[in-house]
Amino acid sequence: MAAKTINITLKIWRQKNSKAKGELKSYALENVSTDSSFLEMLDQLNEELLTKKEEPVAFDHDCREGICGSCSLYINGRAHGPETGTTTCQLHMRKFKDGENIYIEPWRSAAFPIIKDLIVDRSAFDRIQQVGGFISVNTSGKTMEANAIPIPKSDADKAFEAAACIGCGACVATCKNGSAMLFVGAKVSQYALLPQGKVEAKQRVQNMVRQMDEEGFGNCSNTGACEIECPKGISLENIARMNREFLFSAITSDK
């Protein structure tokens, strides 16, 4: 079956570097296969730009199968585009109509400064992880048998669901407050639910929330947009759990 092709107009945010003033630039792109992915469509555009000796559009990507969290585009006013439960790399051109204008912008958040064009600096997430997104286990060689500690199935499932977060930042991008609560809520929950993580739970939630605030992410207004846009279906339940963990630790910890 011959693949259908469409012609589209792209309005893409172009910005030379973090200091430069950016602007939306218009590009006409013809013969885009509806079977191609959104990122393949951008590859096609970049090839055309290169043959014209123009600067290609910079955008983040790596796995292109929805697991690494690199891709990050705000497409037609939605994080990762019009679909829910998918990353940008999993979005296909069949979701767009012939002749459509497609607006492509970078994540917008004070804590995610633009590096170039559509690429933003998400190292704020790394710094949040560094202050608590781990458990301190001695890897001396005498590793404990993993199944020695019984864990209720429902807790294990919830921890696993929280651990599905790929750190893409769509939650921050879609939130009107640029809040990172869903990401941090997932990271806090992932450990707080499991016995190995409970050991450092009190300090973890305090440290991660403090780092999140210092990075300049906004507060949560419970609009719920993050939960809907999250490609991994991370639930608001994780934010509530973080809020409980936070209060409990603020009241009971010595510091």
């Binding site: 958040s109 300049g216 906004g218």
Partner: peptide
């Protein structure tokens, strides 16, 4: 302050009330 620059095109309707 956390979202100093707005999106040129934003469509929050489907994701929040």
């Amino acid at each position: 302050k956390a979202r100093p620059v707005n999106y040129a095109v934003n469509n929050p309707g489907p994701t929040s009330s």
